[in-house]
Design a protein around this nucleic acid. Structure first.
Lengths: 212, 212
DNA sequence: CCGCGATGTATCGGACCGATACATCGCACG
DNA sequence: CGTGCGATGTATCGGTCCGATACATCGCGG
């Protein structure tokens, strides 16, 4: 999962580790707390070994201009390679079982702007299926095993069940939107009124604005 | 976390691994999918080595009665020890930072019936604080970095934000309930109308119904 | 009589986390 | 003037947990 996220972010622009973590946190803040360096750096190493990314020295050569003023020590900048882009495309297009768990789905969803519509639909429906199963499981427990459990455990299940139902509804909306329309547009929610813009899903295979 | 959950379940009755996993799944189904045996068995080994639990042979001795009819092969039954109960009490009473993340909170909450009220309150408030922080982080991103992100990422954040707000409200209710009342009673929710029973929090130190 | 699904125990590699260590930079506060 | 502290930055280690896999038994239906 981390691999996918890193590849996706580096596709937008080269970054060093610290920056990458911040961007990762911003992009995935809704689904996981914050990537640990204990995961990040080894993964970067792994991706580099596989040839998906490369190190790019900062202020690379010809650097007599400002030698020590902003020398900045290490600062290893990572950049995605052509193979890395292929890898990303491959990862984003295929959906295994891990695509539908909480984290996996979140990461995939976060890169939906780079995913073709058919895959988006497939993933959304797979996720819905999975949540529906969880929901049924919770209903079963609440219906069948209620008297075996204490009030707190019951309340936990009830809350979880509600969350499932809510997510299914959310997914339904997204699926409907996807089928017959465009980007997600969920109005009248009241909360955090940010701007909402249409995105045009990039015709598969292209990347827009490589270097501004 | 697994340690706490296992100790808590074995406190109710001895079990073998498979059964333990099923009970674990039933009790924690709202927060995590299903415990993997790759976690369960090593943890059981660890707990046993520490002396918190012991193996108890099934159909222990004097077993000439039905030798091979239901021989059932392995079936290692685990049983909590006195030290294990102490350990559980200690784990359940103290709250570190890991007590407030999704999984940690869920597990603690699932055993609230065995937790004294002061601790319950402390944990609920700690959890609320943590969720509020996450919520603020999401609001920041939505307010400040909205134009940098695509519509799908934005929608993900929005959905996450809503979930945070919902959970805070849930926690508020629980806290209010806890302060001036008894067990969780959340009526009029419409969903899954199970029975709702009052529990009397066991006066700390006792266990009711050891063997029915 | 045979297969298949539930029950049951167990291991291995890998992903990810939390704690920790360490170094540099700029700025606020004494 | 210094000094200490918070942000930036790279890196490792031990430990927890997951997913895949293997294997054995049992009861039941076809």
């Amino acid at each position: 999962m981390l691999e996918l996220a890193i590849l996706g972010l580096l596709q937008e622009s080269p970054m060093h580790g610290y920056e990458l973590r911040k961007e990762l946190t911003a992009k995935l803040g809704a689904i996981r707390a914050a990537i640990s360096y204990g995961s990040l750096y080894p993964t970067l190493r792994r991706l580099q070994a596989a040839g998906w990314i490369t190190e790019a020295a900062e202020t690379p050569a010809t650097a007599e201009e400002v030698p020590a003023l902003t020398s900045r020590r290490g600062r290893v900048v990572y950049k995605i390679t052509a193979e890395g882009k292929e890898r990303f495309a491959q990862l984003i297009a295929q959906a295994g079982p891990e695509t539908y768990d909480d984290t996996g789905f979140g990461v995939h969803f976060a890169f939906f702007a780079r995913t073709d519509q058919a895959t988006r639909l497939r993933i959304l429906e797979g996720r819905r299926r999975k949540i529906e199963e969880r929901r049924e499981g919770l209903r079963d427990v609440l219906a069948r095993a209620a008297e075996r459990l204490d009030a707190y455990t019951l309340e936990l299940q009830r809350h979880g069940l509600e969350a499932c139902e809510r997510e299914v509804r959310w997914l339904e909306e997204l699926i409907a939107n996807e089928r017959s329309g465009r980007a997600p547009t969920v109005p009248q929610t009241g909360t955090a009124g940010g701007r909402r813009e249409e995105i045009s899903p990039p015709p598969p295979g292209e990347s827009r604005k490589e270097r501004p």
